[in-house]
Simulated assay, not measured.
Amino acid sequence: MKIAFYGSSLVSSYWNGAATYYRGLLKALAGHGHEIVFYEPDAFDRQKHRDMDEPAWARVVVYEASPEGVRSAAAEAASADVVVKASGVGYADDAILEAVMDAARPGAVKLFWDVDAPATLAEMAQDESHAVRRMLPRLDAVMTYGGGDPVVTRYESFGARACHPIYNALDPDTHHPVAPDPRFAADLGFLGNRMPDREARVRTFFLEPAAAAPDKTFLLGGSGWEPWQTTDNVRAVGHVGSGDHNAFNVTPKAVLNVNRESMAHVGFSPPTRVFEAAGAGACLITDHWEGVAQFFAPGEEILVARDGKDVAEIMGWLTPDCAARIGRCALDRALRDHTYARRAVEADAILRDLARIKTHTGAAA
């Protein structure tokens, strides 16, 4: 099937946390015989910060961030068998959603792919005229990259015909063990862009432990953190391109995952960073969220902290040998259960079922 996918960016991870998810999942879907065209706006300087060439498994169309650019890109949805509008494009999201669904042919499968379901659902609850909420009756399904049953139930309560979580995962071709890099030497590293509902949790889980352990070194990566008040043992390195993520994850003794507040509250939302770290064989400390044990075994394949004191305590007893052992277990589990190849089997089955339903019923959603 030909899939027209309208998202933030496939070729740039700059201010684009969904890049790893899109790359891993769409590459694996292409392996099932799908023809994929990814449409992304020329916005937020992402094209100036490309960290990936156009892949062999997808065609990338970069369109002008203007009403005319949206109309032109959306018109191409008419030739697709599956039309996907993802959340978080960042430019004219509502207009893109309406334009591509208007352009899609009646027999096409129409999907909203939510890469931040907690935020979208909160907005929908506050605004009955929310574009996604209004569009749900016209969509065949909602796909999400996390959230589990709480997100599925909530979406269905708003009128979604179906909601299917396709979780983040590991692409072992891009995220894998590498040699340590002195640029990223530290006891604990954290990599993530500065976001309003993450900032307070980063203070709690990263800065407070750093202040409590002046004898240890802490590495802060990601966009938006400078200038930020930190202690002398915290080193900020700014944006880290995807090509350096393996080295960033494997070099510190341990790396930290801090979910945004909304995702931690909903649970069952492992971010791409969790699987990137596991793929590199890193020892990962994560903030607590419901459902973590569904993906990695706490204490064996991942370490879980409920607050900054837990992080500080872990860093006090964690030895290099223990960290290496946990990292190896995480890598083994990710390769066994959490690759994008496995996720694509789920997604492919859903897409083909939806296409069969539309063909048999003659639905013109």
Rank of each mutant, 00 (worst) to 15 (best):
S129Y: 09
H130K: 12
H130F: 13
A131Y: 05
A131C: 02
V132M: 02
V132Q: 01
R134Y: 05
R134L: 10
M135G: 00
L136G: 08
L136E: 07
R138E: 12
L139W: 00
A141T: 06
V142D: 02
M143S: 10
T144D: 07
T144Y: 06
G146T: 05
G146S: 08
G147C: 10
D149I: 10
P150F: 05
V152N: 07
V152Y: 08
T153L: 15
T153K: 15
T153R: 15
Y155V: 04
F158W: 03
F158K: 04
F158M: 08
G159M: 04
G159V: 11
A160S: 10
A160I: 06
A160V: 08
R161F: 02
R161P: 00
H164Y: 15
P165R: 09
I166A: 06
Y167E: 14
A169T: 09
A169W: 07
A169Y: 03
L170G: 02
L170F: 02
P172L: 04
D173N: 13
H175K: 07
H176R: 15
H176M: 08
H176A: 10
P177G: 00
P177N: 03
P180C: 09
P180R: 14
D181N: 12
P182K: 14
P182L: 12
F184R: 04
F184N: 04
A185Q: 14
A186E: 02
G189E: 03
L191A: 13
G192S: 04
N193S: 15
R194C: 05
M195V: 14
A200Q: 13
R201I: 05
R201M: 11
V202M: 07
R203L: 11
F205Y: 14
F206H: 05
F206N: 01
L207G: 03
E208R: 11
A210E: 04
A211Y: 00
A211H: 01
A213R: 14
P214W: 07
K216E: 01
K216T: 03
K216W: 05
T217I: 00
F218R: 02
L219P: 07
L220E: 04
G221L: 06
G222L: 01
S223D: 14
S223L: 15
W225H: 08
E226G: 11
E226M: 14
E226I: 12
P227E: 10
W228P: 00
T230Q: 05
T230F: 05
T231H: 11
T231S: 14
N233T: 08
N233Q: 08
V234R: 07
R235I: 00
R235K: 12
H239Y: 15
H239C: 00
V240T: 02
G241T: 13
S242P: 00
S242C: 09
S242E: 13
D244P: 00
